[in-house]
Design a protein around this nucleic acid. Structure first.
Length: 355
DNA sequence: AAGATTTGACCTGG
DNA sequence: CCAGGTCAAATCTT
């Protein structure tokens, strides 16, 4: 029985402030972007402006979230979602169930390729501990329930549910609930990932390192692309930022006005497991994504391309632990300047996911 | 031995 | 009452 209300709120506020600050820094970086400025000024101006625009949106989102947060005192103020109005009348006798209502939720979809293992719970960079599995009415496959490993130690409330798709068994729907509030950041090679996955991790990490060291494009190729599908995004209508996993502990929270909205990210993983993301273990948040609302129907639809324009020096700062300068150690993702266009082509090689 | 997973029981909201 | 979510004892793994 934890009473995380105040604690949660504090954390949220802290992270929002951090995120805001980082966004500010990003803006500075964007404004003084050195290398590509002169030569590529003309060619990249549009994307550059887009970056500035993104920063502004991010900042305004943070402002909004912070003001929402500070305008109220009680933890229940987090329940600023549209649906909260419905639940306002609900008796607040049960903190747990109430907490359930206030946690931001979003959904990813993964497509796996048969043959390879699916250990690590589709390792998304966080360490999860399975606490339940249940058959779901009308679903062929059971749903797995995971919570953050550091739940007890750090009170991290993040949970996720993993369910294999009925129609396409290679597709997994992963629903994340709550942002990570734990602060552990692991280093390369010391990830608490699923043991049987570690050999694979090592290999992949090496690939990653090589990708980083050789060319950012290689990494991008590894990333392939991903596609975002959003669902139930009732309040947000413009794409802001997508980080598929746990890159960015500092920009991870969904804005308060978006709590309970759900976005779906579809991605295939080809030959490159996201386990390389284990370098950012349990930061303070998983991804933050939003997108224009689009109906969510079958498979991979409603593709919405996200354009990221990370700079070499900028991204690690965003996509790393907020607590310290572990950038180079965490991901060190070197994105080339310019557009990063993602489509679903990651492929998981896991089959024992629901063993 | 400690931590993770499994699994049936229990709890809660609709 | 039922489906979904969580708990916790038993079991497994390292």
């Amino acid at each position: 029985m934890e009473n995380l209300g105040e604690w949660e709120r504090k954390n949220l506020q802290n992270e929002l402030l951090k995120g805001k600050e980082f966004a500010r820094q990003l803006r500075v970086h964007l404004n003084v972007r050195p290398s590509t400025s002169s030569m590529a000024a003309a060619s990249s101006s549009s994307s550059y402006d887009g970056g500035e625009l993104l920063v502004q949106k991010i900042l305004s989102s943070y402002e909004k979230a912070l003001s929402l947060l500070s305008s109220t005192k009680s933890p229940s103020s987090l329940n600023a979602s549209p649906r909260s109005e419905d639940s306002d009348h609900i008796a607040q006798t049960n903190a747990a169930s109430r907490k359930r209502n206030i946690l931001p939720t979003w959904t990813l979809k993964f497509q796996v390729t048969p043959g390879m293992a699916l250990e690590g719970s589709l390792d998304d960079g966080f360490s999860w501990r399975k606490y339940g599995q249940k058959g779901i009415f009308g679903a062929k496959h059971p749903r797995g329930y995971y919570r953050c490993t550091h739940r007890n130690l750090q009170g991290c409330v993040a949970t996720k549910q993993v369910q294999r798709s009925d129609d396409d068994p290679t597709i997994f729907k992963i629903t994340y609930r709550g942002n990570h509030t734990c602060s552990q950041v692991s280093n390369l090679g010391t990830t608490p990932a699923a043991p049987e996955f570690q050999q694979q991790n090592r290999r992949i990490d090496q690939n990653l390192v090589q990708s980083q060291q050789t060319s950012p494009d290689a990494l991008l190729n590894s990333w392939a692309s991903l596609r975002i599908i959003t669902e139930n995004l009732d309040t947000v209508h413009e794409p802001i930022l997508f980080s598929p996993f746990s890159y960015d502990p500092t920009s991870s929270y969904e804005a308060a006005d978006r709590i309970e909205s759900t976005s779906t990210v579809d991605m295939n993983f080809t030959e490159f497991s996201p386990s390389f993301l284990s370098t950012t273990r349990c930061g303070s948040g998983v991804s933050y994504f939003s997108g224009s609302s689009s109906e969510m129907s079958e498979g991979f639809i409603g593709n919405q391309k996200l354009e990221l324009q990370p700079n070499k020096s900028e991204l690690p700062e965003i996509f790393s632990s907020p607590t310290s300068g572990v950038n180079s150690q965490t991901l060190g993702l070197d994105f080339p300047s310019g557009e990063l266009e993602m489509e679903p082509s990651f492929t998981f090689d896991n089959t024992t996911f629901f063993s």
